[in-house]
Computed example of a mutant assay.
Amino acid sequence: MRLMGYREGHDRWIGAVDEAGRVTPIATTAEFYRNPATLLEQARRTPAAPITLPDQTYLVPPVPQSAKVLCVGLNYRGHAEEANEKVPDYPTVFGRWESTLICDGVTMPVPASEPGLDWEGELAVIIGETLVDVSEEEALSGVLGFTCFNDVSARRRQFDTTQWTLGKNPDRSGPIGPAVVTADEWGGPDGWTDRKVITRVNGEVVQSGNTSEMIFSVGRILSYISQTTTLRPGDVIATGTPAGVGFVRTPPRFLTPGDVVEVEIDGIGTLRNPVVGAAGRP
């Protein structure tokens, strides 16, 4: 099943989306993430009547507003090498705010303090069960599904200090989507293990990697995080980016107003976002 988030009035909803773009409502986002497995099974047995959204402005991130968004840095050897960093002994985990998440088609503003933004195409995992102190095998059983993510970064602020938080949380810098593919549609929670991750800027391929190149597997990442902080349904784990980011190039290359960046992953689709100037910030 392919899931998406949309708004109806003041409520955020989760629905199943088909190839024609029709959405079958499942439940409000808050209701859905209280018991995803049961509601998915009900939706499969007795689907509601499909609806057609008027346009993309009705889309919302497919996770609750309370979601933790945790990202893993330096999780591909090629990326660690191009950044002149040693291969980490443990997952390098940092946080994003849910408020930075945006959907397919939404513009990303470049902060006035930055020469541009950097791209990081990634596979993201959506949690479907509460995970506390779990093994790697148990962690995989708690995966709801997978989606594309772009961990867009403000490098000047990121590298001002040893703390990455500000550089990883510019306004509207976390594209996610275009849909969440449930784990069963990928053949189970191990379906992530051989998926191409491609990033394009204005149609040019700037990153081309494969999830098989990850240093830490999805199970390892989730297990490691769960030993310190509880993962709950709707939390997002971005699993790292392959080689090819902009700041390591000579000269550095960044996303500037007028650019369009895309992240494509086998079996999920393409996440596409235009870049605008600082005047486009909220």
Rank of each mutant, 00 (worst) to 15 (best):
G269I: 11
R272S: 15
E8R: 14
G78I: 00
N35A: 09
E120F: 02
R22F: 02
A179R: 01
G174K: 09
A30Q: 14
T92E: 01
V60A: 13
S223G: 03
E129N: 08
V134T: 10
G209C: 09
W164I: 12
E19V: 11
D104I: 00
C103Q: 04
T38G: 14
D266C: 11
T100L: 02
G187M: 12
I221L: 06
D118N: 03
G191W: 07
G142V: 10
S153R: 10
Y224N: 13
V110R: 05
G280Y: 15
A238E: 12
V87G: 02
E136C: 10
N35L: 05
I237F: 11
P109K: 05
S99F: 00
L40N: 00
C71I: 09
G9P: 09
R7H: 13
V132W: 02
K168Y: 12
E82I: 01
D133E: 12
R156W: 14
T193C: 03
N210A: 06
T107R: 04
P62Y: 09
P252K: 09
P251E: 12
G187Y: 06
V132Q: 08
Q227T: 14
M4W: 00
G187I: 08
A279Q: 15
A124V: 06
G9K: 08
V197N: 12
Y58I: 00
E82C: 07
V72P: 03
M214G: 10
W164F: 14
R12Y: 12
S66Y: 04
V248G: 06
L117V: 01
T241L: 12
F146W: 02
A27S: 06
E122V: 03
R253C: 10
L144F: 09
E31H: 10
D55E: 01
Y90K: 10
N273K: 14
V260I: 15
M4T: 01
I127R: 03
V17M: 04
D11E: 15
I176V: 13
R156Y: 07
I225G: 09
G209H: 04
T24S: 12
F247V: 15
D11K: 15
I51Y: 00
T241Y: 02
V276Q: 13
T57R: 13
F146C: 06
A243D: 15
V206A: 09
V152L: 03
T165C: 11
R155S: 01
T52N: 00
L140P: 02
T107F: 08
I198S: 02
I225W: 10
L166Q: 11
W119M: 04
T241A: 06
T162A: 14
T199F: 00
G128D: 07
E213D: 15
G269Y: 04
S208Q: 10
K168V: 12
G73T: 07
F149V: 10
Q65Y: 04
L271V: 12
K168W: 06
C148V: 03
V152R: 02
V245I: 15
A183Y: 05
T229V: 15
R200E: 02
E137M: 10
V125H: 02
I126V: 14
A30E: 14
P88F: 01
R232W: 12
T28H: 07
G244W: 11
P62F: 08
